[in-house]
Design a protein around this nucleic acid. Structure first.
Lengths: 228, 228
DNA sequence: ATAAATCTTACAAATTTCTTAAGAAACTAG
DNA sequence: CTAGTTTCTTAAGAAATTTGTAAGATTTAT
């Protein structure tokens, strides 16, 4: 979940942008001038800034320079003036992109996505949050296929991994044995014992006491669930 | 001095862009379709790509995807179609920016500058930081294609290098054998043994004990990853 | 108490990866 | 162009890991 800071003195526009972004599951913070923007920026962990140029108190270019003093967060400019001079000015003070008003919501979203992606997916090293599921002490990373229990890595063969992934991705939802078989083996359920044994093996690895599971619980007569 | 690859089947436009860029002291390579672009991209050290969407043979989106398989070079799209669908498509396949034709030369230059600056602002003169990957004692320099282990240079033939590059550029991410084959050989996976043997050879060079790899680890039933 | 469901264990089978080596192909230098 | 070197592919047996099965033990619901 990304946090986006929208800076615009026109509350109507800011509100509209907020709606578009929230629809796409972004978290939105709003500021109505540059000073307010800086305050929020200090306080919150902002992943991207949408910045209007014309504003009272401190305008967009000033605010951008301030932010740039100690952050390389992507900053996208918004402006009613569509002159190219502005564009170049904007891009040279450390802005990452530029959108002219009136803008098309789809284009706005596309540029936001693009700039966010650039700063995350190509930055090698840490996995994106989307690929990591953590429930209690159990953490599953779908990029590295690594599972840790209380920060200790455990070995998870393909089938065990797939079962764990299925259950952890839908915490608390109960899956019948047949359902697990079909989803993991990708063929009609055949031998329920197989699933049972795998469940046992997973428990051996993630539970302190496999006989009294804390995470991977049975729901009698129905199936299994990962409790979280 | 930056190398910019201009891909456009309209020679007039490509020529015009070339003039603008050369005026700004950029080095320009021109390609007239996607395939040609890929060839040049492989051969030369390209710092930024200006890519037309509509082209014969291989279009811009296809070429972009190919390039994205093993490079995060900035790619800016050019297009005569100003429909938003195109924009989003472009930005979601790994493009960094989008310019609609007819474009204003100044805007083009501004966007080129902006995208270059973002990716190279830490350049120290010789090798750009982006081109050097270091994980543990293993350092890979993509400019010189040199690899050192604990500061000792090792020999890395083309395929070994490409595999190592792929894995080191995405540390911890697991790649299946087929995936490695497709990305490195650029053709559908054929003989998995080939990959296996190359992995063995790389291990022989970078690992103290190839039988208990510290870096290049297997994830049973899934694939290989470079741990870092 | 009884039947049904789940758990546990151990071992055999299947799969995946490792290692080695030999010949083919590609490249380099003379 | 040729000889020599390096790199790549293929193959096959060995080693390691994972998966399936089955049988008996235990737990739960009625």
């Amino acid at each position: 979940m990304y946090n986006i800071l929208v800076v615009d003195d026109d509350k109507e526009i800011a509100g509209a942008i907020e709606i578009y972004l929230k629809n796409q599951n972004y978290n939105v913070f709003k500021a109505y001038d540059g000073e307010e923007a800086l305050e929020i920026f200090k306080r919150e962990e902002i992943h991207l800034v949408l910045m209007d140029i014309m504003m009272p108190k401190m305008d967009g270019t000033q605010a951008t320079m301030k932010i740039r003093e100690n952050s390389s967060v992507p900053i996208l400019f918004l402006s009613a003036k569509s002159e190219d001079v502005d564009k170049i000015l904007g891009l040279n003070i450390g802005a990452d992109d530029y959108i002219t008003k009136p803008f098309n919501p789809l284009e706005l979203l596309a540029r936001v996505n693009s700039n966010l992606r650039r700063c995350t997916s190509y930055s090698n090293g840490s996995a994106l949050k989307n690929d990591v599921i953590r429930i209690g002490g159990v953490e599953l990373n779908d990029l590295t296929k690594e599972v840790t229990v209380d920060e200790e890595p455990i070995r998870t063969p393909p089938l065990e991994y797939k079962i764990l992934f299925l259950l952890m991705k839908n915490p608390n939802r109960v899956f019948s044995i047949d359902e697990i078989y079909e989803k993991v083996w990708q063929e009609p359920a055949y031998n329920p014992d197989t699933v049972t044994v795998h469940i046992r093996r997973i428990r051996e690895k993630i539970e302190i006491n496999p006989r009294e599971p804390k995470y991977l619980k049975v729901v009698w007569g129905i199936g299994y669930k990962f409790e979280g």
